[in-house]
């Protein structure tokens, strides 16, 4: 393809090809400092292409393709090309990742131990992970936690943190010195702005950690903490994993081991201040 960008995020190498220069230039700027795929061979290929040649210039619409695709994925306007690239990379992980059990969770690390936070979109897991990274935690990832079925360790996947709607202002205020991507208005998920993980997160991204605590955050409720029993955790994590079924027995091994080895709590919170205090208290009590 005409424009190409390659990057390694944690243990996963990507190659992004594009009919347009703009998304590639944005990726290169935001992922500056990230390494290249190991041995020069990426795990996944992503393509951003025009459905018809003239759609490169006339009302340009970015189609998403790659090794793994969903049929009839709607194109995005070229102004949202960066989002298209990020979505396509996520899609490769969600549909094609077979080495690690993929949990739809954010992950932060302290002292070699990992806090996993999982929940629906809007639960605040991305925002909390970003804020914790300002308070002595290492950001491992805001979207996918990678559990190694052999070691049980969590691997970092520190892609750009995807902040949505109200979370954008919260992060901008809390992290005035951080680097952000362009503000993307009117996307299918509302306003989106990408936050570049800090240098420490990138420098340490090859260092896995031992899972120590699992939280199910829920934003917009009175503060509350309750234990979640292993059976329920298991069920919720099978639903929070995009590749549990495809991983077969290795997925079963990884998940049962994780569920039996770490405590799990559901935390409800009205604002991020409460949530951060809840997280620190639970972590101290481990």
């Amino acid at each position: 393809m005409k424009h190409v960008f390659s990057v390694r995020i944690g243990p996963v190498g990507f190659r992004v090809g594009s009919d347009w220069r703009a998304p590639i230039r944005q990726l290169a700027a935001l992922y500056a400092g990230y390494p290249q795929p190991e041995d020069g061979v990426p795990d996944f290929t992503v393509r951003l292409f025009a459905q018809r040649p003239w759609r490169r210039v006339i009302r340009p619409a970015v189609m998403i393709g790659g090794d793994f695709m969903i049929p009839d994925a709607a194109p995005l306007p070229l102004a949202q090309g960066l989002l298209a690239a990020e979505m396509a990379m996520n899609l490769q992980m969600a549909l094609g990742q077979r080495r690690y059990l993929l949990l739809h969770a954010s992950a932060v690390e302290r002292d070699g131990r990992v806090l996993l936070m999982t929940g629906e979109s809007g639960s605040g897991k991305s925002t909390l992970a970003a804020l914790l990274s300002q308070r002595g935690w290492r950001l491992m990832g805001d979207e996918f936690a990678l559990i190694d079925p052999v070691t049980g360790l969590a691997h970092a996947f520190p892609r750009l943190v995807s902040l949505k709607n109200a979370a954008i202002a919260v992060a901008e205020a809390a992290m005035p010195q951080a680097r952000f991507g362009p503000l993307l208005e009117g996307t299918p998920k509302g306003a989106i702005r990408h936050l570049v993980p800090d240098a420490a997160a990138v420098a340490a991204m090859d260092m896995p950690g031992k899972p120590a605590l699992l939280l199910f955050p829920r934003f917009g409720f009175a503060p509350d903490i309750r234990d979640v029993a292993p059976g329920e955790v298991f069920m919720r994590l099978t639903q929070a994993s995009t590749n549990y079924v495809a991983m077969g027995e290795r997925g079963f091994d990884a998940l049962t081991r994780l569920v039996l080895s770490i405590p799990a709590q559901a935390i409800d919170y009205p604002d991020t201040k409460h949530a951060l205090a809840q997280v620190e208290a639970l972590w101290e009590a481990l």
Partner: peptide, 12 residues
């Protein structure tokens, strides 16, 4: 084959 390829093919 290079290790990166070996991993991809082992997954496959």
């Amino acid at each position: 084959m290079p290790p990166a390829v070996a991993r991809i093919l082992a997954d496959a």
